[in-house]
Design a protein around this nucleic acid. Structure first.
Lengths: 264, 264
DNA sequence: TACCCCCATTAACCTATGTTATAGATGGTT
DNA sequence: AACCATCTATAACATAGGTTAATGGGGGTA
């Protein structure tokens, strides 16, 4: 991944899509343009509040955030983690009002663009539209898997599962080194993601440490035995849909099209 | 809704989209064509099995189904209910392998088409593509809300919430009469949808009956007091995104475009 | 240096929900 | 009309995980 791609787009969005589909120059330019407007945010700042009108579509360039939903009495569920490179609720921006909030967990660098550009994208770049639709489907798959966790896995299984999920997702974007990565997350947030109490998350993490599967030091987590962790969590691999190319996308989109033969 | 729409598409998909966006004749024809191939299935038959390769995109014309995920040891989570008019995992069909199963709960009538028609749709009908993306985002919102239920609501709240959700969704497609509708669902399935045990679902339903909020007779459920039920379930209204027109969709898609002035 | 706030950690206790077991209903089939 | 398979319904008991409360560490700041 050195500098092999002279033609590699510099935008996270572009890079993400390029990983499973080659882009024309025109498409690259459009994507880069989408991400021109970058803003910075502190830790723990709300990018979007539940009940608010939608504003911009956002792409996480650096940092972590969470998408979360709350009940009137304050109980809260973390729906998903937004990792570097992730799009923040692409299609939701077609809604009037946000049914969830987005809050950063670290200082963050975010690209912003107007929702009507989504429409433009649909009209002018069907291949990009399809690619983003695909990416949206992946997010739904992640949420469905979390639902399975919260509904049917035990505390230990859920926790193990989440750690493996994050490990996998962060690996793709190059943020894991030898099983070690930064987990900028309090136990309260883990609890809210897994539908557990904060005390019980603590007990569970301790158990995972006691078995020797993980190590926690501040915000650094080290996974010693992914395999066993995955086995405890009954981790499936399937749901993240990491396989390179979605077949119909690859085929159908590349055949006839307006393609200009890009970098690779 | 009598026969006001001479131009009303007869396909469920068309009808769904028409409810928030008017369609050109060409678009209507394309949609109708998508739904030409209709198959019938018995109750409890698998339309899709977890781990299987994806086949057709399906639209539920009549009947109910569930999307569900299972753990190796058999524990199961119902991810969502597929009601008449719903699309069955539109974008997931861009994946290689199914990470969930789909099973009918009643005899069902289903329209089928090849996934590569999705691509065709993206190329030829950007407005339809955007509309379906919107519809996909709504499904994600429903799943996220169920995650909130399972993670943070009590058994009584969850159950109340689900009943209201189904009431609302079925109302849209005209399947509710005076608070009464058919619920072709065993307690086991309710349990799997809500992350509870079958016994506890039974206790909880009894409680709702005892309070006088609902009545159950076979597969008929009558909701006596939606308001209180919604209040118990902390039902939000927001997440179903029932508001007529997604603003950017309405605007941006209708302005320039290739529109031909349809029925209304 | 002292104060404060946030967070992790643990212990003791409690309860919502799960488990196991049993008995009726219901409905289809021979 | 007897049989079987599924469901619903309850009771009695078990437990995973919640709650409350107390302690200590770490980092900012005045």
């Amino acid at each position: 991944m050195t500098r092999a791609q002279a033609n590699m787009p510099s935008s996270p969005l572009g890079r993400k899509i390029t990983s499973y589909m080659s882009l024309t120059d025109e498409e690259k330019t459009f994507l880069a343009d989408l991400e021109r407007n970058v803003t910075r945010h502190g830790s723990r700042s709300d990018l979007l509040q539940q009940g608010e009108r939608y504003g911009c579509v956002r792409v996480m360039r650096k940092g972590w955030a969470i998408r979360h939903k709350a009940l009137p009495d304050g109980r809260r569920q973390v729906v998903n983690f937004v990792l570097p490179g992730d799009i923040i609720g692409f299609y939701c921006n077609l809604f009037e009002t946000a049914d969830h909030g987005v809050t950063t967990l670290t200082p963050a660098e975010v690209a912003n663009f107007q929702p009507d550009r989504i429409i433009e994208l649909f009209k002018r770049f069907p291949r990009l539209a399809a690619a983003l639709a695909w990416s949206g489907a992946k997010e739904e798959a992640i949420i469905a898997e979390r639902l399975l966790s919260v509904g049917r896995r035990t505390a230990l299984e859920r926790t193990a599962h989440l750690i493996v999920e994050l490990l996998r997702r962060l690996t793709i974007v190059g943020l894991v080194e030898e099983g070690r990565f930064t987990l900028p997350v309090t136990q309260e947030i883990l609890a809210d993601a897994l539908g557990l109490s904060i005390v019980h998350i603590n007990r569970t993490l301790r158990r995972l440490r006691d078995i020797g599967l993980i190590d926690l030091a501040g915000q650094q987590i080290t996974v010693h035995d992914v395999k066993q962790l995955a086995s405890i969590g009954q981790f499936d691999e399937l749901y993240l849909h990491l396989i390179r190319a979605p077949k119909p996308l690859e085929h159908a989109l590349d055949t006839k099209s307006d393609r200009k033969r890009a970098g690779d």
